[in-house]
């Protein structure tokens, strides 16, 4: 039996919610890593829509994440501080559930609005100019947050309620993967690929390239905002420094390692690159040096992504006839 995309989404959501009933038994350290993996998958898959499928190189994904994180965390700390005092047991009521959902969505929507503002200049810029403008936007967001005293300023925002459970995170992982894949494989979504492959040709056959570029930014930013909200509610502390240029680069590296426009590869890369620092803990001092060398070597040897290259090799190997026939 073949599972359709919609039933796949339903199954994944059910598995995420079911999983969250099992996770309290897990080790806290392990659970933490699992949640980090989930958040990074959302970030990488959403950036892949902008960078990989629509071909608009963005270096400001951490900025969108910051907008979502601060909006959601600001709302939920405000609400829980005011309501927690009045209702006993607010933490576990379905009100908390609703509040979290609304806070996350508000964060996502504000991030999407920011994405629209960043997407607008992308109409006129391409390649490295666009990369530097998105980088600039990310830095501006960080500096603004540093000076936003009511949200903690440079000290950061603490005391965020720990609402982001396994179920929440992996529920959103399922949603973002479904959305991006369904979008890209739909008739109208093919426009993203057309804009990436040859913008002038796409324009010539009547594709509204502007609309595609901006919608890639808006959708990608929305999910980055959601990821930010989830991140804030699992770490319970956020500071502007955590959403700097380095964070954006980290997400970009996931997309590149996985292969731009290869969602399965990108998910795998997000998992590997989140686990890698834990594995490399014994050589922590050289960890980041190795990481940057990996990036350079990868670009020199297989610029289309490690997992894309490996996937093709595996396919070729599987397709090869047995019994030594002609290859």
């Amino acid at each position: 039996m073949k599972i359709g995309p919609k039933s796949g989404l339903a199954l994944a959501l059910a598995a995420a919610v079911g999983g969250s009933f099992l996770t309290p038994r897990l080790d806290a350290y392990f659970l933490n890593i699992l949640i980090d993996v989930g958040v990074n998958i959302i970030l990488a898959v959403s950036l892949n829509l902008i960078n990989g499928y629509a071909g608009q190189f963005s270096l400001g994904h951490a900025g969108f994440m910051a907008v979502g994180a601060y909006t959601a965390a600001g709302l939920s700390t405000l609400v829980s501080a005011n309501l927690l005092a009045r209702f006993h047991g607010f933490e576990h009521s379905c009100w908390a559930f609703g509040c979290f959902l609304l806070a996350l969505l508000a964060g996502g929507l504000l991030a999407a609005l920011t994405g629209f503002l960043v997407g607008a200049p992308s109409l006129r810029l391409k390649g490295d100019y666009l990369a530097i403008v998105t980088l600039g936007f990310g830095e501006i967001i960080r500096v603004l947050l540093q000076n936003f005293e009511s949200l903690g300023g440079a000290r950061g925002l603490s005391g965020i309620p720990p609402w982001a459970t396994f179920g929440w995170v992996y529920g959103w992982v399922a949603i973002v993967i479904f959305t991006v894949l369904a979008l890209v494989h739909s008739t109208s979504g093919r426009g993203f690929l057309a804009v990436r492959d040859d913008e002038i040709a796409a324009q010539a056959v009547g594709i509204n390239t502007t609309q595609y570029k901006v919608s890639a930014f808006v959708i990608g930013a929305f999910f980055a905002g959601i990821a930010g909200g989830l991140y804030a509610h699992s770490k319970q502390f956020i500071s502007p420094e955590g959403f700097g240029f380095m964070k954006s680069v980290e997400i970009v590296v996931m997309v590149i390692l996985g292969g731009m426009g290869n969602t399965a590869g990108v998910i795998l890369a997000a998992v590997v690159l989140t686990l890698l620092p834990e594995v490399l803990r014994p050589v922590a001092a050289y960890r980041m040096i190795l990481y940057s060398l990996l990036l350079i070597v990868m670009m020199l040897t297989c610029p289309r992504g490690l997992f894309t290259a490996l996937g093709e090799r595996a396919k070729g190997w599987l397709a090869r006839p047995k019994n030594g026939g002609p290859p």
């Binding site: 390649g127 490295d128 970009v252 940057s292 060398l293 990036l295 350079i296 670009m299 610029p303």
Partner: peptide
């Protein structure tokens, strides 16, 4: 493609 070089440059910078 220029993007490949740009990413390499980011890698060199981080290194």
């Amino acid at each position: 493609p220029k993007l490949t070089v740009l990413i390499t440059a980011i890698g060199v910078s981080l290194f």
